[in-house]
Design a protein around this nucleic acid. Structure first.
Lengths: 201, 201, 201, 201
DNA sequence: TATGAATGAGACTTCATTCAT
DNA sequence: AATGAATGAAGTCTCATTCAT
């Protein structure tokens, strides 16, 4: 299911190249990264990359696909094993955070170049996956409203939008200069802010 | 006497062109927008743009500068007239939201191409302004912690980071397809989420 | 004889504009100077220049024509009133130097952009004038050889070439930073070098 | 370890391209030569040049640098092995002439576009080298004045200026239409003119 | 006379991609 | 697997010139 027509066998070299590319994409965005830069990082000439991939986009494709598979998979199992929407949401937050830290590059790519990717047939699965993700969140939030855990006046879709973007934020902090938080700190901070707000009780 | 070499006088035509460019930048990002697209939108040839601007970047410069002036100005007056940090923060949120809706393009530009801009001398003021903004937030949050309004265990810098990015989110929703919220709804949702979290009391 | 089809009447404004243009040409060369720079110097817009001239080249034309008229005229009267070729040459040197200092721009234009001008029909007179100049020099040098004033082994054409270019040199020094010589000093130095060389006797 | 980032290794193809470019620069000047003309001469598309060089200017840089290294190197060894300033100067003249004929293009570039190059940081070495060249000449001329070989009333700097430009002249004659002199003839003519003037004894 | 706006040709440059070796 | 060279499309910018007002 994951392989398209041309997807070459995942040799070690290939995997290494994807990782190099992903790091560059994470730093500068997909479009802003040139094939030459990737090749430079690998110590080869840009033309030589085309022995491993048939295009720059197919590198992007591989990175994005793995990311979304990871996230969607995580959400599915988060929801499955949770009766309480509050628990489900906590699991989803933790699962998201973990997936994001495993696929930092994918996030930058989606943030910076969403319009670019989503306009292409090849990347139609992006929209599909995002829809499933959105639905999962909304389902849990609605469930929480109905059983009284969450405030009844929440606009589930609005909160989802906020949450989705909020969850994405900390990833982009990694490797940035200045104080850096541990993932756990961030997640806990997030959850607390989410459930309780900043006001003292 | 009134004209400086570089800060070309803001003729009507010029202002109009900047608006057209800003719309495109908002849609597709600064780098992804070509000079020709801007010219097409204006119904002229791409070279003709250079009658009004010396470079694509100087268009970007103008848009970003106005935006940051607006935001920083808003924060200053928000802080000045507020004894209670809670009030200050509410004012800052409202002021941000207003500024962001006035300068939608600037935000997209910063989000998509921050690395590109901030690496250039010409855009050094971006970092300067961001620092002032950060400090303003942190000051108010710390004040709130000390006088007991906010939870004592808040990491002010962490919360600021979250907030900053959260505030930016709704802007990118405008003009997007699907359900759209009114600005007031969004701001109120945000403030409520911020102060109280999603949990029912 | 000096007017071509379109040559506008030499109003004061026009003359002033030509002087401004000439200064810029002298500094940076004809091609390297843009119409906009000329207009800027005059405090008008570049399009407005076309009320006075039908093209950038016609400005160049006027400058070059005046210069060559001046030089050729000077040579003619130098030769007329001189029995001794030594005297004729001294007069030619002084006349050249004077003409060059009056038309500094023309020189830069010819030096930098000779290939450009001389390839155009419009500037055919450049070649004509240069031929007359060359012939005048060669005539005097040959005369000097025959009557024993100059060394019999001089290659007149070679010496002319050297001299022509040598005479042009000091002009380009004016306004340059560092020590500057008076015109008289330069001319005397030149003449002495020419007639006697640098060796002590 | 041998390759620096910018000073791309001199492949054969690269060297060939530089030679082609240099010929064009010599003919028409640096600025007046377009990248497309260079590419045409090489039988490739203009964009393909950028596989070998990062810019037109870097081609110019390479040509100019080699030239100045050659000239300065030649002057140094001319001065080292010569007790008599007269001998030193003769060596310098011969060394200049040789270097100039090896780097004809560089000369045209400096003559036509000196203002353009010398205004750029990248070409700061031009000024440095010119200063060393000037100082070398002046030193030898002063030495000759003091030991009585040269006339005591010579203005060393003035003579240098004349000489420098005079030495440059013959190069521009090569390949020009009309009678052409052999290099030796030119140099001997020059030296004789320099030491003895044109007057018969 | 001058302005303000625009044209159009052509300059330099970038970059994903191809391909013979 | 990789190199070295090239393509070709597209992008930013320059500049002499035109023209309605």
């Amino acid at each position: 299911m994951t392989t398209t027509k041309k997807a070459a066998p995942p040799s070690e070299r290939r995997t290494h190249l994807i990782r190099l590319a992903a790091d560059l994409f994470a730093e500068k965005g997909f479009r802003a990264t040139t094939v030459r830069e990737i090749a430079d990082a690998a110590g080869i000439l840009s033309g030589s990359l085309y022995h491993h991939f048939d295009s720059k986009e197919s590198i992007g494709d591989e990175i994005l696909r793995e990311f979304l598979d990871d996230v969607v998979g995580g959400y599915r199992s988060a929801v499955e094993g949770a009766d309480d929407p509050r628990v489900a949401i906590e699991k989803m937050v933790r699962s998201s955070t973990a997936a994001l830290s495993r696929h930092r590059a994918a996030l930058t790519m989606l943030q910076n170049d969403w319009a670019y990717f989503s306009a292409q047939k090849r990347f139609a699965y992006l929209r599909t996956a995002m829809k499933e993700i959105e639905q999962t969140w909304i389902d849990q939030l609605e469930r929480g409203k109905q059983d009284g855990h969450f405030r009844a006046d929440l606009d589930a879709r609005l909160v989802y939008r906020l949450l989705r973007d909020i969850l994405w934020i900390p990833t982009s902090w990694k490797q940035s200069r200045g104080k850096s938080w541990k993932t756990d700190e961030i997640v806990d901070g997030l959850l607390r802010l989410l459930f309780e707000g900043i006001t003292a009780r």
